[in-house]
Write a protein that binds this DNA or RNA. Structure first.
Lengths: 156, 156
DNA sequence: ACGGAATAGATGACACGTCATATAGGTTGG
DNA sequence: CCAACCTATATGACGTGTCATCTATTCCGT
């Protein structure tokens, strides 16, 4: 799959685009993380977990459902839930239907954290990202990322 | 800076674009990391460090220069260099001019690793990313990421 | 009913990142 | 000259991510 013979490099336009993308990706992620951390002590990962739990009746999901929704590795989720449990953001419950299974449940503290966090986070995403772009650019980005995702899915 | 009153949510187009971006960002990064790891036991971070060292005469830089080039936190670089040193990819040398200072030097193993890794890595970037896009899309991406970067720099 | 395969989840080891702090050497105004 | 300060770098603690592996169930074909 790799041992190529004549390495085709990226052309100048591709280089520029790639570098800019990598820089933006790193800085944007860092900025969003800092904002969330400062505003309410959550990480982006915490935020994503809490959003998914909030979106569901009873704030309660099987870990494997959460895993598929987040597209995380199983052990990443398991470790992360342990840490969030330690901080009181979620709880684990046994699952009556399936002896192997469990439930992750949003606690009151968890629900409050995400409720507090969401407006500021969305505002930051807008301020740092969408406010810099016109609607055509947003559409172009959606289109282009979707195409790359299709490619990634195809590659497995 | 955050405690907004009436939270303005993202509109549907923005939501779609944002979700697609986050998904692509995560999956692309993971795929590139896996490829590098499988092909030559390097991480993306290793790769970036080695590229910068390769681009310079003697393969030798002061850590603070490397830090600014990579836009990494200082302690991240220091820790990472320690790990790379342990694996024999770089060495540390004392700096005669400045008693506090040091040099990071590419070892032979380091130079060989990056030489081996680069073609496959570039090929993967092309295969997973640029092959999915037309030239106008590449230009649109460059433009859009550059605008966001300007915004991020301004927010500092 | 049973034995093997698949599924749900947890865990330990270890790489990676960040924050706060430590150390030591330069720089400079008085 | 030297005290206050700034710069270069390292480190320890701790949160995060991955891989390999372990356990307990459930499922399924015979």
């Amino acid at each position: 799959m790799d041992g190529m013979d004549a390495p085709r490099w990226l052309d100048d336009d591709q280089q520029r685009a790639w570098r800019a993308y990598l820089r933006m990706q790193a800085q944007l992620g860092a900025a969003l993380n800092r904002q969330l951390q400062a505003a309410c002590g959550l990480s982006l990962a915490d935020y994503d977990v809490l959003v998914h739990l909030t979106d569901v009746p009873d704030g309660r999901l099987r870990p494997y459902e959460l895993q598929r929704a987040l597209e995380w590795e199983q052990s990443r989720l398991s470790h992360h839930l342990s840490r969030m449990q330690r901080r009181g953001l979620v709880e684990r419950q046994e699952c009556a239907d399936d002896g192997r299974g469990a439930f992750v449940v949003l606690t009151e503290a968890g629900r409050e954290a995400i409720t507090t966090a969401a407006p500021g986070h969305v505002e930051t995403v807008r301020a740092l990202f969408f406010d810099a772009l016109g609607p055509e650019q947003v559409e172009a980005l959606r289109q282009l990322t979707t195409q790359v995702l299709a490619r990634l899915d195809a590659a497995g």
